[in-house]
Design a protein around this nucleic acid. Structure first.
Lengths: 300, 300
DNA sequence: AAAATGTTTTTTCACGATAAAAGACATTAT
DNA sequence: ATAATGTCTTTTATCGTGAAAAAACATTTT
């Protein structure tokens, strides 16, 4: 099979959505930057759009002939990259019952189960290993360390260290730094979400990530910024799996964020520290309380 | 070529050194644990030792017939794993003149240059990416961020945060913890090295790593412990490349370590903090001063 | 001449295949 | 009965290969 053309399919779908808005498409290089793909892929997309009668394409002229229909789109599942597919399968296994610490991970078995080559699985596991949940035995298998209470505590310890420092750096940023505008925009989004929390509570996690990433970026330290990937990954899958009191949790978190934002804007180090600590404390509580009892025993 | 038998060759060489000490070799499983390889590899080693007349092998009986000669050993370079070979080549390039930040890294070119398959290079780059020196453009090349002054500052910032915390945790460890014995042993080694620093100064870097790893382990946090890999890697290659004032540097560092050890043993948080800060400060100075001027300009 | 399109080359991504190494199972010795 | 040896099976590490995607080069259009 060698390589799937998911990049093309995904870009094609995104390009279809562009069709709704305009009468004609921009130049090839421009489309490339817009979709984040190379001109080669852009041209494949245009070829297909021409074939299926979506556009008339003649050199610079790319006129939209008809609006896209549902059947013009490639199925969603064909637009995922192999890495995403492997990650999902792996996380499902990891968070499923019976994924005990100390368990062996078998590349070949994983690859067969998911239906992909071993190379892709190996590369995924290497990338994934930085999250601290698995470990390699040289020339041999991987060992699952387990999503335990110990893991959550170690993760939050670093998170708290990094975020307190980043928040302090943020508050010390000069008045004319563009981050203050970013923060204002996020504040507006938070207020809007707070007003409609009853129906939109599930939109919080995306906002949460953008907010914390903005703060971490103020550290100007690649290790701190990169570490947020670990947190984001854990939160992403964890909350997908644990939906208990999601609305209440997010409602509280939004308010904490607003207080945190106000503290940052006050630029008072003491206030920033307090608001940050308060939010991190409840974030830790939330994470810990959602680790099932069975997993807490896996400390050994 | 598929896979080199460096594991076997390396274990064989190590096993040869064992021959000097005994009249007969232990059981296969025992040898396996001793050498850190499987029984399959142990049996290959024994086979060859029998063939070359080093031992007489009959089931449980493995009698040493003659001491190993120089030509019995496999050449050193054949005992390196592919990963080590790639790492060395890559680091040579990275630390060589002309490795400017922003430069592209080409998997295929690297693979051809080193004479290995692309898969191994890819896997190496993925593993290496956690050091924060390179970054992947999806579906495209890697970008070198460069071993710049900024990198060194970001690295030391985290290091200082982590080590101060670990040192505090260390000092708070109960009297009966086995780490105190470990520390005592390290203290003795430090004193011995201090006495013969004029001739043995190049042995410091190995001792340095063991000392700091012991302290970091007291944090009981996998992220802190793992982060020392980044520091160790940088120091390893960096000092291999920059030998200026090595003796003086190490002499100072040994003394700082001894003061640091004394502070830890006093279990006084204030003293520990002070000694730790002092050492970390001079470590940072050493690292920064060894970044050539040309590289400092690469901040952008 | 700058920017687009058309064409060709190179690189990345993913696979199956194969030898090395690990691991499992069967047999034998203490 | 335990622990070793002998044998067979499975998994890991690595390569070459080929399609997808990117990038480079050449040509045309504005």
């Amino acid at each position: 099979m060698s390589k799937s053309n998911n990049v093309y399919k995904d870009a094609f779908n995104r390009c279809l959505r562009l069709l709704d808005e305009t009468r004609s498409l921009p130049s090839e290089p421009e489309l490339g930057t817009l979709l984040g793909v190379s001109r080669t892929t852009v041209r494949s997309i245009l070829s297909r759009m021409e074939e299926t009668g979506l556009i008339a394409w003649n050199k610079r002229d790319k006129t939209v002939l008809r609006p896209p229909r549902t059947q013009d789109f490639f199925p969603e599942e064909e637009t995922d990259s192999l890495a995403e597919i492997i990650e999902r399968s792996f996380m499902r296994r990891l968070l499923a019952e019976g994924a005990e610490a100390g368990m062996q991970i078998n590349e070949l078995e994983l690859a067969r189960e998911i239906g992909v080559g071993t190379t892709s699985v190996r590369e995924f596991l290497i990338r994934f290993s930085r999250f601290g949940l698995i470990e390699k035995r040289r020339n041999s298998h991987w060992v699952l360390k387990g999503f335990t209470r110990a893991f959550a505590l170690e993760l939050t310890e670093i998170r708290e260290m990094f975020e307190l420092r980043s928040a302090a750096a943020f508050a010390a940023l000069p008045e004319d730094s563009p981050v203050w505008a970013d923060l204002d925009r996020l504040e507006v989004e938070h207020r809007q979400l707070a007003d409609e929390i009853a129906t939109r509570f599930n939109e919080f996690s995306e906002l949460d990530e953008r907010f914390h990433r903005l703060i971490h970026r103020a550290s100007h330290n690649r290790f701190i910024v990169d570490f947020y990937d670990v947190i984001a990954m854990i939160f992403h899958y964890h909350y997908q799996w644990n939906k208990a009191q999601e609305r209440e949790r997010n409602e509280v978190a939004v308010q904490e964020h607003l207080a945190y934002i106000a503290a940052l804007k006050s630029r008072d180090p003491g206030k920033v520290d307090a608001a940050c600590r308060k939010h991190l404390k409840s974030a830790r509580q939330t994470l810990l309380s959602s680790i099932p009892e069975g997993r807490q025993a896996q400390l050994a």
